[in-house]
Every structure is written in C-alpha cells, then in structure tokens.
Simulated assay, not measured.
Amino acid sequence: MEPPSPHTFTPTPARDNLSLEPRLALIERALLRLYALFKQGSKGDAEGKRPGRFDMVNRAKYDAWAKVAGTSSADAKQS
C-alpha cells in the first residue's frame, strides 16, 4: 500500500488566517475587561497609586480597571 500523496490533503487549522499572537491579544484584552468589571463591581473605582512601568502585569490590570471608573456596581455586574 502506498503512502498518501502530500498533495491530496493537507490539514490546516480552522482559523489559519489568524496567527497565534493576535488571538492571544484578543484573549488578554477580554480577560483584562473581565478583571476590570469584576473589580469595579466588587470594590468600586480604582484606588491607590498606578504600578510602576516595570510591573507590567499589574499596571495593565490597573489601567483596565481605571478605564471603567464611574461605572456603577450594578452595571459592572451586569456586563
């Protein structure tokens, strides 16, 4: 029995038009938005100092939370 020809079928990912990096960026933005709404719903507006430039993860979290400042607790929980 002959092995199948490489030209007959080449499986590709379902969404091969998006590489991994843009998909991860979308996921990260969605997670930051979810984090921000959770913090807004449970604690209210962002408080305290903004983390320094070398603390990139916490700085991104703080910035996401600060973007939803002014949103009521009920609205944040509904979103």
Rank of each mutant, 00 (worst) to 15 (best):
R15M: 07
G70T: 00
R33C: 09
A74V: 13
G48C: 04
K67V: 09
E47M: 10
P3Q: 07
P3S: 09
A14G: 06
E2K: 13
P4Y: 00
A69P: 02
E2R: 12
S5D: 15
R23L: 14
L37F: 06
F9K: 14
W65H: 07
R33Q: 15
R23K: 11
F9S: 14
P51T: 03
K49C: 12
L32E: 01
A66T: 07
V68L: 03
G48H: 01
H7L: 09
V68F: 01
K49A: 15
T8E: 00
P11V: 05
R50W: 07
A74Y: 11
S42A: 09
E28Y: 08
V68I: 05
V68M: 04
L37E: 01
A25R: 14
A74R: 13
G52I: 04
V57C: 06
S73M: 13
I27V: 14
M56D: 07
V68Q: 02
A76K: 03
K43G: 00
T10M: 11
R29E: 12
K49Q: 14
S79V: 10
K77E: 15
R29D: 11
A30S: 10
A25C: 10
L18Q: 13
N17L: 13
K61V: 02
S19M: 06
T71C: 09
A64Y: 03
L26F: 12
L20A: 11
H7A: 10
T71L: 14
W65F: 05
G70C: 02
N17G: 09
Y62K: 02
Q40K: 04
F54M: 12
W65C: 02
L32M: 03
A36M: 01
D63A: 02
A14N: 05
P4E: 00
L24N: 11
G70S: 03
K67S: 12
D63R: 02
N17T: 13
G52K: 03
H7V: 08
S42F: 06
A76S: 09
A66N: 06
G41D: 05
V57Y: 13
